[in-house]
């Protein structure tokens, strides 16, 4: 698997509040249209709840709230990206609620710059690197870090810097 991981340069890109984010394509299982999400009581807002994915219970995380962006409007393009993540050593499937998916792009390792230490408005652990695709910069997410733990989206370093 790790061998294959190194080989794959494809990323699925999606929009959150107009910004483009990318995740490695081999971690993505499927993209669903928005469906009814069952909220689990007494959980943080960004944990939108769970859905029934062909008989399995899959949790859904609202990426807007996770990253402290403005709450999302539901549109016809709203979608849930189902992906494989490893949370505290346990492999599990999880849905990320995004504004819309854009495309699958290919990025050579040379096109990826290390994540800036500050200024991304995100916990620097969450960002794997910045992909340069044409004129755009794509924030490539380290999805395991994003969904591990229940800490807020802003790192302490960022809060201090801000």
């Amino acid at each position: 698997m790790s061998h294959e991981e190194n080989q794959t340069n494809q990323y699925l890109t999606f929009y959150l509040n107009g910004e483009i984010f990318g995740i490695p394509i081999h971690r993505v299982l499927e993209v669903l249209d928005y469906t009814e999400i069952t909220k689990v009581p007494q959980t943080p807002d960004y944990m939108r709840g769970v859905i029934n994915l062909r008989g399995s219970i899959v949790p859904v995380v609202d990426m807007h709230l996770k990253f402290d962006l403005d709450p999302s409007e539901r549109t016809v393009n709203s979608c849930i990206i189902i992906m494989d993540v490893t949370i505290e050593g346990t492999k599990t499937s999880l849905g990320a609620l995004a504004d819309s998916v854009r495309e699958v792009i290919e990025l050579e390792p040379g096109q990826i710059e290390p994540a800036p230490k500050m200024g991304t408005r995100l916990n620097s652990d969450f960002v794997q690197g910045m992909g340069k695709h044409g004129d755009e910069f794509i924030m490539l997410l380290n999805i395991d870090a994003v969904f591990t733990g229940h800490h807020g989206s802003l790192s302490e370093a960022d809060s201090v810097a801000a």
């Binding site: 009581p41 709840g49 219970i57 949790p59 995380v61």
Partner: peptide, 23 residues
Amino acid sequence: SLGPMYRDVRCTSGATILGDGSV
């Protein structure tokens, strides 16, 4: 099971899927 994301949730012990497909 609700999975590792909801490990710390105390008030529910899991979920079930109803006849209409809802949770």
